[in-house]
């Protein structure tokens, strides 16, 4: 975890043996990671992997059970309020006040940080512009679409000009167009040098936004690197996907052996990993395999996850 490090700057987040337990259940099991200033850092993993618990510990809303955690150089146990004053938090579930207008939601949130009312109003207008909601400022929150509410939540999290943004599943539940609008805004923040920490179970989101990420599964970090590094390390350049008519795949035991460097059998298809996917397809035909459809594609983080855990990200 070194290539992003800027000389002479301390990490914004440093976790060692970080653990969260709820009774006998361990949600986060002794994880280590650093987040450097200016980078976009992701936690990729399926639901229940411990991503949200990790985020809530970083956000100083959930106390750590074990290990050490430093956020912005401070200890959440003793300086929680001070740390939170410098964070911008986008929670997984919207926490907007439906009884107030869009603009009022921003102003009142700024007041939580102790900014003066005129200052809050000025920032609110600036942020509405940034998330393209200026014309909805006087409307109540309730009729807004899911994507607009997300953008409003992002605007809200920026009201204190945070040093560090925490985004928990920022686009879960949004339609593709709304997701791209959110990504676009996050990408702009990244270009401005805002440090982003996000969780996601979408590999495309992780690939689009993250400079570096950790893969989480069952409360542990199972791999760490940039999206490209992870793909290089844990997968091949290409993947050939074979789909067979119903019932056929089960009869083909053993016939894939030696195709590509690795075979992964999913319930609905067979994946053959190779640097040259076309060559694998030709080899399969020569063996007399007759798949219904064949697809050759580049490896993604989904393949990395499958390799590391034997399961898909979204089940």
């Amino acid at each position: 975890m070194s290539e992003q490090r800027v000389a002479g700057t301390a990490p914004l987040i440093q976790a060692r043996g970080l653990t969260k337990r709820f009774g006998t259940f361990t949600a986060v099991d002794a994880v280590d990671f650093d987040v450097q200033p200016g980078e976009a850092f992701g936690f990729l993993g399926p639901n229940g992997a411990g991503k949200t618990s990790t985020m809530r510990m970083i956000g100083c809303t959930s106390p750590i059970s074990d290990g050490t955690l430093l956020v912005l150089g401070m200890d959440p146990r003793t300086e929680g309020a001070k740390i939170r004053g410098r964070l911008g938090v986008v929670p997984q579930q919207d926490t907007l006040d439906n009884e107030l207008t869009v603009r009022e939601n921003l102003i009142i949130y700024g007041r939580y940080f102790g900014f003066s009312r005129p200052e809050c109003a000025r920032r609110a207008d600036e942020l509405l512009e940034f998330v393209q909601l200026t014309d909805r400022g006087k409307d109540l929150v309730e009729p807004l679409s899911g994507g607009m509410k997300r953008r409003l939540t992002i605007a809200r999290s920026l009201i204190n000009e945070p040093d560090l943004m925490l985004l928990d599943e920022p686009t879960t539940g949004l339609d593709p167009q709304a997701r791209h609008l959110v990504w676009d805004r996050l990408y702009r923040l990244k270009q401005r040098g805002v440090t982003l920490v996000l969780t996601t179970h979408y590999m495309d989101e992780a690939e689009q936004l993250c400079d570096r990420l950790v893969v989480m599964d069952k409360a542990k970090i199972v791999a760490e690197g940039s999206p490209r590094q992870l793909i290089e390390r844990y997968s091949t350049r290409e993947v050939a996907e074979f789909r067979f008519p119903a019932g056929v795949q089960e009869t083909l035991d053993g016939q894939f052996e030696g195709l590509g460097s690795r075979i992964e059998k999913l319930p609905d298809r067979v994946l053959a990993y190779a640097d040259d996917g076309e060559a694998v397809v030709i080899a399969a035909r020569e063996r007399g395999l007759h798949p219904e459809t064949v697809l050759v594609r580049r490896s993604t983080l989904e393949d990395v996850f499958l390799r590391l855990t034997g399961r898909s990200l979204i089940e």
């Binding site: 956000g59 309020a81 939170r84 004053g85 907007l96 809200r156």
Partner: peptide
């Protein structure tokens, strides 16, 4: 429901 108290807890408020 609207979880605004959770929004507060993510800021310097507690």
């Amino acid at each position: 429901w609207n979880r605004i108290f959770h929004a507060m807890a993510a800021t310097p408020l507690e």
